[in-house]
Simulated scan of single mutants.
Amino acid sequence: MDLSAKLADLGLTLPAAPAPAANYVPFVISGTQLFISGQISNGPDGLICGKLGDDMNTEEGAKAAETCALALLAQANAAVEGDFSKVKRLVKLVGFVNSTADFTEQPKVINGASDLMVKVLGEAGRHARSAVSAASLPLGVAVEIEAVFELV
């Protein structure tokens, strides 16, 4: 699969794989599993910050989650050294939503990432998932998502 071409068909581009912001590595390969560290919402204009249920709505949160998915794909692409045919499937996403105590649409927010993964990867993009609230996230971002992929 040509990841960049598939994204281009969707009007998207693969960003550079973000560098770690602290003392961790962006991904670890263990056997046939690729674990990708949490990727924070970051768009062309910089970090996407905010709190769902306060200064951001669900649709804005879903767009922020989509940027996390793009960063996850960029990290996966870096892990396989640009040969995305080595990626068999997405196994799991764990999404964290910076939200107020009464906000309950975390699943709809993380759908921004899930929907993109299915558009890009097809059936191989269908995955197990968690979508949870967080009182705050690093640097005040709206969304952070980590992933597990299976490699061939």
Results as ranks from 00 to 15, higher is better:
Leu139His: 13
Ala76His: 07
Asn23Thr: 09
Ala79Val: 02
Thr58Gln: 13
Gln33Tyr: 11
Ser136Trp: 03
Ala78Phe: 01
Val132Pro: 00
Gln75Met: 07
Leu7Asp: 12
Ile36Thr: 07
Ile145Val: 15
Asn111Leu: 05
Ala124His: 03
Arg126Thr: 13
Lys88Pro: 00
Ala113Asn: 04
Cys68Glu: 08
Gly112Ala: 03
Ala16Leu: 10
Leu73Lys: 08
Val28Ile: 14
Val132Lys: 09
Ser4Gln: 14
Ala8Ile: 00
Leu14Cys: 12
Leu3Asp: 05
Asp83Cys: 00
Val25Pro: 00
Asp45Arg: 14
Asp2Asn: 15
Ala19Trp: 00
Leu116Phe: 08
Arg89Val: 05
Leu121Asn: 04
Ala76Arg: 05
Ala64Glu: 11
Ser30Asp: 15
Ala69Arg: 01
Phe27Gln: 03
Val118Ile: 14
Val28Met: 13
Leu14Asn: 12
Leu93Lys: 02
Asn57Trp: 02
Ile48Ser: 07
Ile145Glu: 09
Ala79Pro: 02
Val80Pro: 08
Ala22Asp: 15
Lys119Trp: 01
Val28Arg: 15
Ala71Lys: 10
Ala22Thr: 12
Tyr24Met: 06
Asp45Asn: 15
Val80His: 09
Leu70Met: 07
Ser85Gln: 10
Tyr24Ser: 12
Thr100Lys: 08
Ala5Gln: 14
Thr58Lys: 12
Lys51Trp: 00
Leu14Ser: 13
Pro138Leu: 04
Glu66His: 00
Phe35Val: 08
Gly125Ser: 10
Ile29Gly: 10
Leu72Gln: 09
Asp45Met: 12
Met56Arg: 14
Ser41Trp: 02
Val143Phe: 02
Leu93Ile: 11
Ser99Glu: 03
Ala134Tyr: 10
Gly82Ile: 04
Gly125Cys: 09
Val80Cys: 10
Lys119Cys: 02
Pro44Glu: 14
Leu116Asn: 10
Ala64Met: 09
Ala79Gly: 06
Asn23Leu: 04
Ser136Val: 03
Val91Ser: 13
Ala76Phe: 08
Ser133Phe: 01
Phe84Ser: 06
Val148Arg: 03
Leu3Ala: 05
Ser133Glu: 11
Ile48Pro: 07
Glu144Met: 10
Pro138Cys: 03
Phe84Pro: 05
Gln75Thr: 12
Gln33Gly: 02
Gly38Lys: 09
Ser130Glu: 14
Asp55His: 06
Lys119Pro: 01
Thr32Phe: 04
Ala8Phe: 00
Asp54Lys: 13
Met56Leu: 15
Thr58Ser: 15
Pro20Trp: 07
Asp54Ser: 14
Gly43Glu: 08
Ala62Tyr: 08
Ala113Leu: 02
Ala131Ser: 15
Arg126Ser: 11
Leu52Ser: 11
Val28Gln: 15
Gly53Thr: 05
Ile40Gln: 14
Thr100Ser: 15
Pro44Cys: 01
Gln75Asp: 08
Ile40Pro: 00
Ala134Trp: 02
Glu66Ile: 00
Thr13Phe: 04
Ala76Leu: 08
Cys68His: 06
Asp54Cys: 03
Thr67Ala: 05
Gly46His: 02
Arg89Met: 12
Val109His: 12
Leu90Gly: 09
Leu72Ser: 08
Ala78Tyr: 01
Val109Met: 12
Asp102Gly: 00
Leu12Asn: 09
Arg129Val: 07
